[in-house]
């Protein structure tokens, strides 16, 4: 039982970190007043650029896999910044509808990644659109000393991906930046009441650019963390994690701490269908073995129920739960007031 809980928690953290990081990115851009539903696209680009870098750089250049992992992160961030820049120019400088330019990026990112994979044969083999991930090489097996702490040591310091520590660091830094620095205060002002902020001498456009660029950095890292630790193959998709991150951000009321808890809750439900395997008693209850004396005409139906119906209902749970909680919490939603609105100096 103890081991099962440890493995399940590790799995939940694995899914939660990319969600937290990406949702924090969304939080920064929305707090500055620019919506960014292109998080999904930016995640794909971050994952793609990071993976290609990690796969193509000769391993002999690096003293350890950790340095290689860092190189992948840097490359991912550069990719994310470029795509965030495309969105920022349209949304801030050109006063375009923010949904439109973000949709363009969401369309462009997977197409470009697939196109380049195919044209430059970056995939596993000629004509394959799948890039091999081989993320297990980045696993940190044991952190000395800390791994000996009971429970915490096993969850946080044994067989973990570096993304766990980066994710936690980003969460802490984000809270500090948003609430304890001049930059954070100004950014929040831009998202709440840009005209007042402008009157107070803040350059709205500059703040908003910075907000969008931060979302580019974080979303691309989120994508990179996701594919290196959660999947074996990358075929230009992050399976909707970018949109889930937006849900997490809204559900977390645009606040770092709430976002972290929401992401954990979401990740716990998201990994439930996999996690059931860690708990034999629960598995037995959910998927009771078919009794030997079952009439043959019922066997097909019972197998259908246990192999198709129940697992898919479990998979549905996080989404149903989100809707239910949103119903209960949406009345007191604290969205930044100017989020998604174009800022025009001359407007009253």
């Amino acid at each position: 039982m103890y081991d099962s809980i440890v493995s399940y928690l590790a799995l939940v953290l694995l899914a939660a970190i990319p969600l937290i990081v990406t949702a924090l990115g969304g939080m920064f851009t929305e707090r500055g007043g620019v919506t960014n539903i292109s998080l999904e696209g930016i995640m794909i680009i971050g994952a793609f650029v990071g993976l290609v870098t990690v796969n193509k750089l000769p391993a002999s250049w690096f003293s350890s896999n950790f340095v290689l992992y860092l190189c992948g992160m840097i490359a991912a961030v550069i990719g994310g910044l470029i795509f965030a820049g495309i969105h920022a120019i349209a949304a801030i400088k050109m006063k375009a509808n923010q949904i439109i330019s973000a949709t363009a990026i969401n369309t462009l990112a997977p197409a470009l990644a697939l196109f380049l994979t195919m044209s430059l044969t970056l995939g596993e083999a000629q004509g394959s659109d799948k890039i091999l991930v081989n993320g297990t090489r980045f696993i940190i097996e044991r952190v000395p000393l800390l791994a000996d702490i009971p429970f915490i040591g096993e969850v946080f310091f044994t067989n973990v991906y570096p993304s766990l520590y980066f994710g936690i660091a980003i969460l802490v830094i984000s809270s500090i930046v948003l609430y304890k620095t001049k930059f954070g205060l100004r950014l929040r002002a831009c998202g709440e009441n840009p005209h007042a902020a402008d009157a107070a001498g803040i350059n709205i456009y500059k703040m908003r650019y910075q907000g969008v660029f931060i979302s580019g950095i974080l979303a691309s890292l989120g994508g990179y963390f996701l594919v290196t630790s959660f999947t074996n193959e990358f075929d230009a998709t992050v399976s909707g994690f970018g949109f889930l991150a937006i849900a997490v951000m809204i559900f977390g009321n645009w606040k770092p701490k709430n976002i972290a808890f929401t992401a954990l809750f979401f990740a716990a439900l998201l990994t439930l269908s996999k996690g059931v395997a860690f708990f034999p008693a629960l598995e037995n209850w959910l998927y009771p073995p078919i009794p030997a004396d079952t009439p043959p005409e019922q066997i097909a139906f019972l197998t259908y129920v246990s192999t198709k119906v129940i697992p898919n209902i479990i998979s549905m749970l996080p989404y149903i739960a989100t809707l239910a909680v949103l119903v209960l919490s949406s009345k007191k939603s604290a969205a930044p007031k100017a989020s998604g609105l174009i800022y025009d100096k001359g407007e009253r």
Binding site: A96, L108, P110, F115
Partner: peptide, 20 residues
């Protein structure tokens, strides 16, 4: 690769977004 269509579509959408 046929993905070129989506690249073209994305550019079209972007251009329409900033056209005004």
């Amino acid at each position: 690769d046929k993905e070129i269509t989506n690249i073209v579509v994305a550019v079209i959408i972007y251009m329409i977004g900033i056209s005004s």
